[in-house]
């Protein structure tokens, strides 16, 4: 790693000020992606501004609208435990990220901000139509994820909280890449009173996306049979040593049907 200093502010305001004053500074969540990136010398920040020592960014609660609100520095393990009753599909997703030691460090906000095209949480946020709260504004998940490792976050802007509307039924189905445990393909399906949302991770070169054809079919008939004859196109899918674009496109269909069956 290149040399850098670490600061551990105790408030959101102090973290924002620390990032604003230094273009070369980077925010540090749980570090489960950023630290390996730094080891590979793929980033050379002057300072890391840790967001994990900020009490107001930790914890889970339910707001007056029945939304599950989770502080961005809440770990995957804490989410898995904390929303077990209130949002079981989200709990199951969080409880299968990485391994137990990774889940004790990795944070919700860190995963969402990084927007790895194979990460699980972006599918949950997009599939739930979550609202991403930053120090400056509230952003709809539909507007937040803009591409591979890209989001609409501005320089120095930090995610402080996510608010999830709880669907009537939901399921996350992950076909895990066995070495990394990232999603080779993952589908988060959520059925709300006003419609079905299907968010796909791991598959597209553009990162997480909504599979609108499947949503339209499921809005007509919420059953795995409704998806017969609908296939995701391999066009624009990721191809690597683990899976071809065609295989990933096939898995999108398989995982979506499994999610429908699990949520029915």
């Amino acid at each position: 790693m290149y040399s850098f200093d670490i600061e551990q502010p105790k408030t959101i305001a102090d973290a924002v000020a620390a990032l604003a004053g230094d273009e070369e500074a980077m925010a540090l969540g749980g570090g489960q992606t950023l630290i390996p990136t730094l080891k590979a010398r793929l980033a050379a920040p002057s300072r890391l501004i840790s967001l994990t020592a900020i009490p107001e960014m930790h914890g889970i609660c339910m707001d007056d609208d029945g939304r599950v609100c989770i502080g961005a520095s809440t770990t995957h393990a804490e989410v898995a435990e904390g929303v077990r009753a209130s949002y079981p599909a989200l709990s199951a997703l969080a409880g299968h990220i990485g391994d137990p030691a990774v889940r004790n460090r990795g944070t919700l906000g860190g995963s969402i901000a990084n927007n790895d095209p194979s990460a699980c949480y972006p599918a949950a946020a997009l599939g739930s139509g979550a609202t991403i709260i930053t120090n400056a504004r509230a952003i709809a998940a539909d507007d937040f994820f803009t591409g591979l490792f890209e989001t609409c976050l501005e320089e120095g802007e930090i995610i402080t909280e996510l608010r999830f509307s709880v669907p009537e039924a939901a399921s996350y189905q992950k076909f895990a890449q066995p070495a990394s445990r990232f999603a080779l393909v993952g589908v988060f399906l959520a059925r709300f009173s006003d419609g079905v949302r299907v968010a796909v991770t791991g598959a597209s070169e553009g990162g997480v996306y909504r599979w609108s054809d499947a949503e339209a079919a499921l809005n007509e008939d919420f059953s795995a049979a409704a998806l017969e004859g609908i296939a995701a196109s391999p066009q624009g899918m990721i191809g690597d040593i683990h899976a071809s674009p065609e295989y990933r496109a096939h898995l999108v269909g398989v995982m979506t049907r499994r999610a429908v069956a699990a949520a029915s």
């Binding site: 670490i6 570090g31 489960q32 630290i35 390996p36 080891k39 890391l48 393990a77 391994d99 137990p100 030691a101 990774v102 004790n104 460090r105 070495a179």
Partner: peptide
């Protein structure tokens, strides 16, 4: 690289990979 777990220790009672924490 955070994968093998030989470096697992407990920090504040939680198992973590000591190679992936400062």
């Amino acid at each position: 690289t955070s994968q093998c777990g030989a470096c697992v220790v407990h920090v504040s009672g939680k198992a973590v990979k000591a190679c992936t924490m400062f």
